[in-house]
Lab assay of single mutants.
Amino acid sequence: MAEAPPRRLGLGPPPGDAPRAELVALTAVQSEQGEAGGGGSPRRLGLLGSPLPPGAPLPGPGSGSGSACGQRSSAAHKRYRRLQNWVYNVLERPRGWAFVYHVFIFLLVFSCLVLSVLSTIQEHQELANECLLILEFVMIVVFGLEYIVRVWSAGCCCRYRGWQGRFRFARKPFCVIDFIVFVASVAVIAAGTQGNIFATSALRSMRFLQILRMVRMDRRGGTWKLLGSVVYAHSKELITAWYIGFLVLIFASFLVYLAEKDANSDFSSYADSLWWGTITLTTIGYGDKTPHTWLGRVLAAGFALLGISFFALPAGILGSGFALKVQEQHRQKHFEKRRMPAANLIQAAWRLYSTDMSRAYLTATWYYYDSILPSFRELALLFEHVQRARNGGLRPLEVRRAPVPDGAPSRYPPVATCHRPGSTSFCPGESSRMGIKDRIRMGSSQRRTGPSKQHLAPPTMPTSPSSEQVGEATSPTKVQKSWSFNDRTRFRASLRLKPRTSAEDAPSEEVA
């Protein structure tokens, strides 16, 4: 009796068929016929556990003709996506030579605008209408194809895939403007070719909807975003200037109206006075309405000098805001240009540092100066060695804690006790272990408590650290204090090793 083939788990290929790579489910599931010992083939499952149809090819690079078809379809799909992405970037994010197409579109729109203006002049109306009709045909074809291509290429973005995504893309403001202008152009052409009475009025009214094509030149909205950011950044200043200017306008108009309503027919109503105030304070000055009385002229002159300053403030605020924003954008561009080279330089330096163990090129690091100058660790070890030599091999803490019996001779020589300023008595072995921070803190506390006492003391002649007598400086308080830590004499004296002298005989010792 033939044995059933062993159940295979995992992703390994079956024996005897090495080139074939078959994806098997996580659990080997066989058909009921196979479990019962029949000759049925096992049921194939996909990666998600769903059964595959009987005629479906197995996924994998070596699955025969199905694999070749899959490779061809995958390559075609990649080319399709690449083309779609390229078209989308050309239309929505132009760079380099892609601006040539947008310059061509701008020339078409500008020519249409010029011809629309010439069509309103009686001398050039006939020729402009003929040229404009031909140009409209060209623009309908160009913009119609462009609109379709834009909607198709938007599928390269995830949020615009599918018919719902394309509809979302078509609802964008600039796409809506394109659609309105396209419909208006078709209506103008249809009305112009019919030759009816309505054609002339339709051409004159709907052609100027094509002015909206100038708005579509900035599809990404960079200028509007820049203007919005400047207004938002200086909103408080703008609101303040406009508010005060509006108050000056209504008060000036009302007072001039009261002064001129009886003697001047131009100011017969408050609305006429508001019109005069707006034209005057905005420095336009049509001259259609002028005050005639001396009181009205004085009020107009005073409020004009006051109001023009507030009406001119928004222009200066926006101008300075634009300058600052442009400078910030230039700085951001320079930062973006330098970020990648800086990151590459840091990575290269780290690779060199991690692979080169000698690091002989590091001549400006802490390790280099640590090898030249005595390190703080060596100074600490030197302090501890000196203290243990004086205390008979014991550390200062051990000397303080060691009990001394009554009447027993002390094995240590008597030492002079010292007192730290602002604290109780402490171990004499710690007097010379006072660090730089303690010395600086002690000097600052003395300056806070009594700076007036220092200038009363007789001035001391500054001497070099080499000429100081070591026996005289029994305490860190003898170090000359200065008002600034930048004094080199104080810094050098604080680094010197001060020996400890006994109370009975204080021989001067120098520590090399």
Rank of each mutant, 00 (worst) to 15 (best):
M1I: 15
M1L: 07
M1K: 04
R20S: 01
G34V: 10
L47F: 12
S50C: 13
P51T: 01
Y80N: 11
R82L: 10
L83R: 15
L83Q: 15
Q84P: 10
Q84L: 13
W86R: 02
Y88D: 14
L91Q: 02
L91R: 11
E92K: 13
E92V: 08
E92A: 14
P94H: 04
P94R: 01
P94S: 14
R95P: 14
V100F: 01
V100D: 09
Y101D: 00
Y101S: 01
H102R: 12
F104S: 13
I105K: 06
L107W: 04
V109D: 01
V109G: 03
V109A: 08
V114M: 08
V117E: 10
L118P: 13
Q122L: 05
N129S: 06
L132P: 00
E136K: 00
V138E: 12
I140N: 15
G144R: 02
E146A: 04
Y147H: 07
I148L: 02
R150Q: 07
V151A: 10
V151D: 13
W152L: 10
W152R: 09
S153Y: 13
S153P: 02
A154G: 04
G155E: 03
G155V: 05
Y160S: 01
Y160D: 13
G162V: 02
G165C: 05
G165A: 04
G165R: 10
R166P: 02
R166G: 12
F169I: 03
F169V: 08
F169S: 06
F169C: 15
A170D: 00
A170P: 05
C175W: 02
D178V: 01
D178G: 00
I180N: 06
V186G: 06
A187D: 14
A190D: 00
A191T: 00
G192V: 07
G192A: 02
N196I: 00
I197N: 07
F198S: 03
A199D: 13
S201C: 01
R204H: 04
R204L: 08
M206R: 12
R207L: 14
R207P: 12
R207G: 12
R207S: 10
L209R: 01
Q210R: 00
I211N: 00
R213L: 00
M214K: 01
V215E: 01
D218A: 02
R220P: 00
G221V: 05
G222A: 03
W224C: 00
W224G: 00
L226M: 00
L226P: 11
L226R: 03
L227Q: 00
L227P: 00
G228D: 00
S229P: 05
V230E: 01
V230M: 00
V231D: 13
V231G: 00
Y232D: 02
A233P: 11
A233E: 08
H234Q: 11
H234L: 00
H234P: 01
S235I: 03
S235G: 03
K236M: 00
E237G: 01
E237K: 13
L238R: 15
I239N: 05
T240I: 00
A241V: 03
W242R: 13
Y243N: 02
I244T: 01
I244S: 02
G245R: 14
F246Y: 06
F246L: 07
F246S: 11
L247R: 03
V248L: 12
V248E: 07
L249R: 10
L249P: 03
L249H: 12
I250S: 13
I250T: 11
I250N: 03
F251V: 09
A252P: 10
S253F: 00
F254C: 05
L255R: 00
V256D: 08
V256A: 09
Y257N: 10
Y257S: 02
L258P: 06
A259T: 03
A259D: 04
E260Q: 00
E260D: 05
E260G: 10
E260V: 14
K261Q: 13
K261R: 07
D262Y: 11
D262A: 04
D262V: 12
A263P: 11
N264Y: 13
N264H: 06
N264K: 07
S265F: 08
D266E: 02
D266Y: 04
F267S: 08
F267Y: 06
S268F: 04
S268C: 04
S269F: 10
S269P: 05
Y270D: 13
A271D: 01
A271V: 06
D272Y: 14
D272N: 12
D272H: 09
S273T: 02
L274F: 04
L274R: 02
L274P: 04
W275R: 07
W275S: 11
W275C: 03
W275L: 07
W275G: 14
W276S: 09
G277E: 13
G277W: 12
G277V: 03
T278R: 13
T278P: 00
I279T: 13
T280I: 11
T280P: 06
T280A: 02
T280R: 03
L281V: 03
L281S: 03
T282R: 04
T282P: 06
T283S: 12
T283A: 05
T283N: 04
I284T: 02
I284M: 10
I284S: 14
I284L: 10
G285A: 11
G285V: 11
G285R: 02
G285D: 07
Y286D: 14
Y286S: 04
Y286N: 12
G287S: 05
G287C: 02
G287R: 05
D288G: 04
D288N: 12
D288E: 14
D288A: 13
D288Y: 12
T290R: 05
T290K: 02
T290P: 11
T290A: 07
P291A: 11
P291Q: 08
P291T: 02
P291R: 01
T293I: 15
T293P: 02
T293R: 04
L295R: 05
G296V: 10
G296C: 14
G296D: 12
R297G: 00
R297W: 02
R297S: 09
L299R: 08
L299Q: 14
A300D: 09
A300P: 05
A300V: 01
A301D: 08
A301P: 07
F303I: 04
F303V: 05
A304T: 06
A304D: 05
A304V: 10
L306R: 09
G307D: 09
G307R: 03
G307C: 08
I308M: 06
S309Y: 05
S309C: 11
F310Y: 12
F311I: 04
A312T: 15
L313Q: 05
L313P: 05
P314S: 06
P314R: 08
P314T: 01
P314A: 12
P314L: 14
G316D: 14
G316C: 11
G316A: 09
I317S: 15
I317M: 11
L318I: 11
L318Q: 10
L318P: 14
L318R: 11
L318V: 14
G319R: 15
S320A: 12
S320P: 05
S320C: 10
S320Y: 15
G321D: 14
G321S: 14
G321R: 15
G321A: 13
F322V: 00
F322I: 00
F322C: 00
F322Y: 03
A323V: 15
L324Q: 15
L324V: 15
K325Q: 15
K325R: 15
Q327P: 09
Q329K: 11
Q329H: 14
Q329P: 15
H330N: 10
H330P: 11
H330Q: 05
R331P: 11
R331Q: 07
R331G: 03
Q332P: 11
Q332H: 02
K333Q: 00
H334D: 04
F335Y: 02
F335S: 01
F335V: 02
E336Q: 15
E336K: 08
K337E: 07
K337M: 06
K337Q: 13
R338W: 01
R339G: 09
P341A: 11
P341S: 10
A342S: 07
A342V: 12
A342P: 04
A342T: 14
A342E: 09
N344I: 10
N344H: 05
